[in-house]
Simulated scan of single mutants.
Amino acid sequence: MIYLDYNATTPIDKAVADAMVPYFYGFFGNPSSSHAFGIEAKEAIDHARKQVAGLLGCLENEIVFTSGGSESNNTVLKGVAHSYQHKGKHIITSKIEHPAIINPCKFLETIGFEVSYVPVDVYGMVNPADVEKLITEETILVTIMHSNNETGTIQPIKEISQICKKHQVLFHTDASQSVGKVPINVYDLGVDFLTLAGHKLYAPKGIGALFIKKGIHIEPLIHGAGHESGRRAGTENIILEVGLGKACEIASEALNNDEVQKLTEYFYDQLRQSFGEQIILNGHPEKRLPNTLNISFLGYNGHEVLNQLMDTAASTGSACHSGMTTISPVLEAMGVAEEVGRGAVRFSLGRYTTKEEIEVVVSKLEKVII
């Protein structure tokens, strides 16, 4: 089986799994306990928090551990909505966000909040000027994803953050798909909140993190005891947090390795040589994730193409939209024609992809795309 769906999820890195193992069998204390067992557990969490902060370039106490990207996004949207509703009830997001942003926004609309959805261009890129046009005195939050999970297009986050600062509006970016693939420094980006999902960077599922800039206080999504400095209740999952910390440490060391990008470029070159004008690249040709290719095979249905690529795992859209027979909402927002969008297949490469696997997939495609 050839796996080319790393944007959906990644396998757990062996070094990550090895780091977690001791916490399955020992170090089981409650981090809130003051005895030796609790102190051991707390030290492990503190170290993991330091590793995550190191990858994002922030302070350790600005990192909140969560159950994943969806919880982090919901925490920001609902927390800001509750804590800042005295200022206004207007939120801005984009038309190409993940459902973990779109659906909480739809929920907030049902309880009296107004949400504006900024459009994107043909490359799936948000124009910062369009964001600024939508800001009003009632705007309390802008949330724009760092990169799109389907096309890989990277958004002008730094420029948007500068606009938000000018208007004194909080800014969040969902960087679940970007962290570990491209360098990210939260201070350089100028964001107030940033979402990270562990299973996108070779850590386990069910663990994530949320960067909350120092000095910003929002209502917690989960109430209870004072865990995570009162920002997220629930006894800490030491095993998964250790895994996420190790994954972030590995990602920090691997960011300068461009092997995946070279392999992705090789893949695209092979596809162009084999199919020429029969394929179209969806997304920005340059400003995109180094591992992502969203390719439309003209005259074909993406699902049918994948069904004929025996033993190859890829996607016809984001993983959350698998099984769709209509054009992806992301491609629709980009203005991609229906007949082009139906033929889209997303190939996303990763740490364990090989050149030989790419050549096998191209060879298989040559038998399908005639």
Rank of each mutant, 00 (worst) to 15 (best):
L201G: 02
D192K: 00
T151F: 03
K214C: 03
P156R: 01
H167A: 07
T173Q: 04
P183C: 09
D188V: 14
D174N: 08
I157F: 11
L196W: 05
G215D: 04
K214Y: 10
I144Q: 12
V182R: 05
H199C: 14
C164V: 09
L141N: 04
D188P: 10
L194A: 14
G198Y: 09
K213T: 09
G206Y: 02
F171R: 10
V142K: 07
P183A: 12
I144A: 13
G206Q: 00
P183G: 13
Q177A: 15
K205M: 14
K214H: 13
G180S: 05
I140G: 04
C164P: 10
E138Y: 00
I163Q: 10
D174H: 10
K205P: 00
M145A: 14
Y202S: 13
S176L: 02
G206K: 05
I163K: 09
G180A: 01
M145R: 15
L189Q: 05
T195I: 09
T143A: 14
L196F: 05
V179M: 00
K213V: 03
C164K: 11
K213I: 02
V186A: 06
N148V: 11
A175F: 02
T173H: 08
L210D: 10
S178M: 12
G198E: 02
L189T: 04
I212K: 09
L196P: 03
I184G: 05
D174W: 03
V169S: 06
T153A: 12
P204A: 11
T151Y: 07
S178G: 10
H146S: 07
K214E: 15
I184Y: 01
T143E: 12
V142G: 07
P183L: 12
I184F: 11
P156M: 05
K158P: 02
I140K: 00
Q155C: 12
F193Q: 07
I184P: 08
S176P: 08
T143H: 04
D174K: 06
D192G: 00
K214A: 12
V191S: 13
M145D: 11
T173F: 04
E159F: 11
I212E: 07
V169W: 06
V179A: 09
K213A: 07
H199P: 07
H167E: 02
I160M: 06
Q162T: 13
I212C: 11
H167R: 14
K165S: 14
T151R: 04
L194K: 12
L194R: 09
D192F: 01
I212R: 14
T151G: 09
D188R: 13
K158M: 11
T173C: 06
K205R: 15
L196C: 07
L201N: 07
S178I: 08
I144Y: 14
D174I: 08
H172G: 00
Y187P: 06
Q168G: 07
V169A: 06
A197D: 01
T153H: 12
D192E: 01
E159R: 15
G180C: 01
Y187R: 14
E138F: 01
I163V: 15
I184R: 07
E159M: 14
P204T: 12
Q155S: 11
A203S: 13
P204Q: 10
E159W: 13
V179D: 02
F171M: 12
V142L: 07
N148D: 15
L196V: 15
Q155K: 10
K205C: 13
F211A: 06
G208N: 03
K165F: 09
P156Q: 05
H146G: 00
F193Y: 12
S176Q: 09
D188Y: 13
L210P: 03
